[in-house]
Write a protein that binds this DNA or RNA. Structure first.
Lengths: 243, 243
DNA sequence: CGTTCGATTGATGTTCTTCAATATGCGTGG
DNA sequence: CCACGCATATTGAAGAACATCAATCGAACG
């Protein structure tokens, strides 16, 4: 995908939740950044290190993560193409989290100054950016709730539903068949499990709901069953707000 | 505490992380709201219901929570006096989360319109509000990481450290002796545990680090030990950023 | 053709939950 | 003032979920 196509995807994402004037859309669409290629496993942002740009994912798959003292990681967000993975860093340039490429990925590093300037000149854009990070936090809160109160199979089913819905809402794929080139070890870091248990959990969902992980894609045989198994309700994704 | 004192506390909190001009401070300080008394356990905001005001805690203790289908709750944030518990709702007035009073509390309901107006007229205030919700999300990410990767005792120790640091940073109390009138059942909802296990966990910390829950207060005998036990590093609280 | 990474499976151990009972403090009505 | 009821804290025993350790298998790749 071309860089400007990624920016267009980001703008579309913003427009999904916020009302922005044509002039402001144009200003957003004019955003530019440095194109960077990341290898599999590469850390693009390190926890506790300052950054001066936000990371727009062009292609691939990114994870925001927190690191324990012993090096173990917990993934706190997954980002798909068109996501600005750390728009947060615009008001908070010294983040406690890190960003990692889960597969070879291409990102656009957009200077904080440009985003900040845009937000300062256009209140509607400031509000739209703010809203975007709140939607991100809403997803994070749901992950917290699931980690605290749902068992492994439920949590995994929920995550698959979430990624499917997001892929579909952002018109990248269909909910029951979408790109998610993630290993079981990476899934384990996202779900707060061990790789061994992820393997058994995925196997359960394969039998119960026809969930297949193949060729870096997820295919869901029984979507309705998966939604039920994961207690999934898409309200928290904030896909139909418009303010 | 008087309502205007609570607003002052909120303003001080904003100033902790953001540079705001004197005129803007004055505008913030002029915020007013409806004073509401909440009884113990009362839900102030219900998940999935629209709101038209943000909730500033004057006195007491609030929890933001997510609710499972079977009614079980997971607390995703604890709020102390001076916190705006759902500043998030300004850009996102249909939240997926709820807000509950854990003890009899007094809140100030501040109209979204006033906050939104302020943010639109003063870019620095918009940025400060945005920054505040990002700091809140940073705490949430840490909770997610701990729920996913830390055991019960570590998680509990971490939470106590966090609340102590926040109380001290906001000049409400000292880190090793502060008000936290929370029951073990409520702690369980925050830590993703059962009340029984919270009881045993708290008992362990009482022995290992001299942690006492008494009279609605927490007292910590061995703060350094507790920090070590909880792998606590306060960077994620964003207490020393200034932008 | 060997090496490496990821997926898979089995056996065993630990953590946390569940169920159940008892204790303790505190407010309320008698 | 005392008796009672209710919420919270505490403890014990048994079970379930998940982790840990260890090994095998298969595919991709140099």
């Amino acid at each position: 995908m071309h860089s400007h196509a990624a920016v267009a995807l980001f703008v579309r994402r913003i427009l999904l939740r916020s009302v922005v004037s044509p002039g402001e859309v144009q200003a957003l669409s004019g955003l530019e950044g440095r194109r960077v290629q990341a290898s599999r496993g590469q850390d693009l942002v390190l926890p506790g290190h300052g950054v001066h740009h936000a990371t727009l994912l062009v292609s691939g798959l990114l994870a925001r993560f927190d690191q324990m003292a012993d090096g173990r990681r917990q993934i706190t967000a997954l980002h798909i193409p068109g996501d600005m993975a750390d728009l947060h860093s615009v008001p908070m340039p010294l983040p406690a989290w890190g960003i990692q490429a889960l597969v070879p990925s291409v990102v656009l590093q957009i200077p904080h100054g440009d985003l900040r300037g845009l937000a300062e000149r256009k209140p509607a854009i400031a509000m739209a950016f703010w809203r975007d990070t709140v939607a991100d936090a809403s997803i994070l809160a749901k992950w917290t709730a699931n980690l605290g109160r749902a068992d492994a199979v439920t949590r995994t089913a929920h995550l698959i539903c979430e990624m499917g819905m997001r892929m579909e809402a952002h018109e990248l794929d269909q909910r029951h068949d979408f790109a998610l080139p993630i290993t079981q070890a990476q899934l384990a870091d996202a779900l707060g499990l061990t790789t061994v248990h992820v393997n058994r959990t995925v196997s359960t969902l394969r039998q119960e709901c026809g969930v297949l992980f193949e060729q870096g894609r997820v295919r869901v045989g029984d979507w309705t069953g998966l939604v039920r198994r994961g207690n999934f309700d898409d309200g928290y994704l904030m896909l139909d707000v418009k303010a």
